[in-house]
């Protein structure tokens, strides 16, 4: 096993984790752009995705694809409900106030999940077997390819939605200028609701595709949410390719840091590099003047 094979392994593993961060990061960015809120409950939807799929599949004996569908549906509903009950009643509040509400929401959702499913860790079956696949000397699980594939689909769908559908375009308009958007007849309230629904669905999807590899429990959301948050910020809170790149960068940096430098300091290494980049480019990595935000 020579070094280049090892490095390929680090990069591929890092890309796989990074893809998850990217999807979670997209959720952060979408809500941020329509409301200026950093939604600290985002990680809990990742948890809900995994736990709900598990519940439908293992407890209710539904087929895996149907369970996944239901899990995304329920998580989306929870996200929309949260927006209706806790975010939308406070129309003109300072975004910071709303951030605290999302912190409360995340504690609440985590608490309910703990009561419903207990504190144990559970494992979701792999989507298609567990025979490792060898790729130029590096090995990956079939599930890694599911992660790459579904992430790609999500990115493309996201792009199509925001650039070619009328709702998506309206949401983009809102993120540029809310007042102007409402003047041309866009219902700003609806776009906020949509942004919460879409982010929850994205979070849940990330949680589902990662659960067979990494297992899931009521408290997995905290750390994954944090990493996704980093991805979104590195991407300049863009709802597009910036955040995806951000997620992949965080994932690969972590993996290379652990493999080549020190596994104890791997998160610190990733953050130090990110901070250095930020210090050199205070306006963000992928911002070239006036670019798209959604």
């Amino acid at each position: 096993m020579d070094l280049s094979e090892d490095i390929l392994q680090y990069i591929l593993s890092g890309l796989s984790t990074g893809a998850i961060y990217a999807v979670i990061g997209l959720g952060f960015a979408i809500i941020y752009n329509s409301t200026s809120i950093i939604n600290f409950a985002q990680g809990e939807f990742v948890m809900l995705g995994g736990m709900l799929t598990l519940f439908f599949h293992v407890t209710l004996f539904l087929s895996l694809p149907f369970s996944i569908f239901l899990a995304v549906l329920v998580a989306t509903a929870v996200g929309a409900l949260f927006e209706r009950l806790a975010i939308s009643p406070l129309k003109n509040a300072d975004p910071l106030i709303l951030v605290i509400i999302t912190i409360g929401g995340s504690i609440l959702i985590r608490g309910i999940a703990m009561l419903l499913w207990g504190k144990d860790t559970y494992v979701l079956p792999m989507f298609s077997g567990d025979e490792p696949i060898v790729l130029w000397g590096a090995t990956l699980m079939p599930q890694n390819f599911w992660i790459f594939g579904i992430t790609l689909i999500i990115i493309v769908a996201n792009r199509l939605f925001f650039h070619h559908s009328i709702i998506g375009k309206a949401m983009r308009a809102c993120s540029f200028n809310r007042v102007a958007s409402s003047l041309v007849g866009i219902n700003v309230k609806h776009t906020v609701l949509f942004s919460f629904a879409i982010s929850s669905a994205l979070g849940a999807a990330a949680g589902i595709i990662i659960a067979p590899l990494t297992m899931t429990s009521y408290d997995v959301g905290i750390m994954l949410g944090l990493k996704g948050f980093c991805a979104a910020i590195i991407g300049g809170m863009s709802g597009g390719i910036g955040t995806v790149a951000g997620g992949l960068i965080v994932g690969v940096l972590e993996s290379l840091g652990a493999g080549l430098i020190s596994s104890g300091y791997k998160d610190a290494i990733a953050f130090i590099i990110l901070l250095l980049i930020l210090f050199l480019r205070p306006q963000g990595l992928f911002v070239k003047g006036d670019t798209e935000r959604v």
């Binding site: 680090y10 796989s16 998850i20 997995v220 994954l224 993996s255 652990a258 493999g259 596994s263």
Partner: peptide, 13 residues
Amino acid sequence: EIYGPKDTDMTAQ
């Protein structure tokens, strides 16, 4: 080598 309590992938180590 070391890993974090909430790490999801230890292939690098």
